[in-house]
Simulated scan of single mutants.
Amino acid sequence: MFAFLAVVRAGGFREGARASGHSASRLSDSVRRLESRMGVRLLHRTTRSVVPTEAGARLAERLFPALGEVEAALDVVNHYRDRPAGTLRLNVPATVARLVLPSIVTPFLQTYPEIRLEVIVEDGFVDLVAAGCDAGVRYDERLEKDMVAIPIGPRTQRMATAAAPAYLDRRGLPEHPRDLLGHTCIRGQFASGHIPTWEFERDGEIVRVDPDGPLLVRLGAAADLALRAAIDGLGVIHLFEAWLQPYVERGELEPVLQPWWQTFSGPYLYYPGRRHLPAPLRAFVDFVKEAPAPT
């Protein structure tokens, strides 16, 4: 059953083997034995993909939380070790992987060398248990219900707007957010297909604009492509301030509408409120709580 879930979670035998530390052939044999014992096909296998059958999907849905409890029970042994060991799976958006985790991951793994950290980058909303993850990082408006949440990373962040000096020389500097409606802008899109408006705030006034432009990219996953286009002078970009800051400092981008940049609360580490947390997760939670919050 663990082999079956490893394959379902990873989307294939080869990927499941990498995640579980077993060979692909061993996972395949285990799943085949499970199918034989249950008398039903659990996975559709092709040369290009491995996906659960309807029966397999229903089985996985019930097994994920059940075997998660089994793993938690076995993890009790960790409390008798000098140092916690095991795998910690985190589900985070691309912005957190780029802007928050780099200052945390290396010192954490150096402190706990017997822990193996897996970081799954997804910008959409996920069910942690179904995704086979121990914890996630999201912003407060996207936290799952019935989860324990603690602050991680900077407690305030800003969305910043910028453009290449060459672009601003050609098109002029916007003085109000609504001026962006007459500019070429590089837009972002969520995995759901939703294209968020750009939101600005100054002295209690909130202005939302929906500018147009020739380039639309998936937020997070293709942000570097949008950034490159902005540096090359294609148009105005609206992104996390920390993401744009190095390019502003080098003069490749110039801040736009800076008094209107909107501040919002930083991300949270969230996880199911179990009485006994797996040892790797408990170690990570304690590490995050003790770490000084960056500004």
Rank of each mutant, 00 (worst) to 15 (best):
P165Y: 03
A166K: 13
Q110R: 13
G235S: 14
I104S: 11
D29E: 11
E175F: 08
V148D: 12
L63E: 06
H183C: 08
I186D: 10
V100L: 03
E252M: 14
N91D: 01
C185L: 04
Y80A: 14
T106Y: 11
T295A: 09
D75Y: 05
Y139G: 06
V209F: 05
P177N: 03
L257N: 00
L180P: 10
G124L: 07
E290Q: 13
R142I: 13
H176P: 09
V100M: 04
P174T: 03
P113T: 03
M38L: 15
V256N: 00
V217F: 10
G68K: 07
A6H: 15
A279N: 07
R62C: 06
L88H: 06
R202A: 12
R171V: 12
Q262Y: 02
R218E: 14
H44L: 09
E54K: 05
S25M: 15
P84K: 02
D82Q: 05
M38R: 13
F108R: 03
G21I: 05
G204K: 13
F240A: 15
V288D: 07
R275H: 11
F190W: 14
Q110W: 00
P294L: 07
R89P: 03
R274W: 14
A160T: 00
L168E: 01
A72N: 12
G68Y: 02
S192M: 08
I186A: 13
F190Y: 15
L215T: 12
R32Q: 06
F64D: 05
R171L: 07
R41P: 01
F287P: 01
R282M: 07
Q258Y: 03
A242I: 02
A242P: 07
T184P: 13
G86C: 04
G251T: 06
A163N: 06
Y80K: 04
G11S: 11
P165I: 07
E69K: 09
R58W: 10
E199A: 15
W198V: 07
V100C: 01
P151Y: 02
L215P: 12
L181V: 11
E35P: 03
G39P: 03
I186N: 05
